[in-house]
Amino acid sequence: MFRRLACSALLLTSLAFPVLAAGETDHGSAEHVSELGGVRIIHAWTRATTAREDLIFLEVENRAGKTVALTGGESEIGAAVTLVGIRFKDGAPEFVSLPAIPVKDGGVLQLDPEGLALRIEGLKQPLHEGDVIEVEVELDIGHLDVDVEVEAENATGHSHAGHSH
């Protein structure tokens, strides 16, 4: 009985947390989709870096039947994960901290290198191309564990972008 319960708990845990325990990096495959209550997060990626901060990009698809808000995130490999807007001043990018951004039901919010990003600050380790890091994305309806793939240092998109899920 207890063994069956333990197995069920393990199975549920593995469904809720796609690949790894939070804070670890992996050099293998990653889940491209994470879902919570009709909200899907697709193609999360970042760039390889040795700096103390990095930007995470992803797509939020809302099929929850109501407006949901993206508020930020957290990760054990960084001190903080905040929502930032990228704007260009005299041609140079600068980052502006943003409050929660609502996503209408049926809508998609793109976090990409020319607009929005989750900024991970106080990185505790360098990120290498091919790594997978785990970030907890905060929505107003709950938290969602997302696998973030580390792309090349000069990448402009997720290597799996364009594929439908």
Partner: peptide, 8 residues
């Protein structure tokens, strides 16, 4: 923030 939401 609305500019980013509008772009999407």
């Amino acid at each position: 923030w609305a500019n980013y939401a509008l772009k999407s």
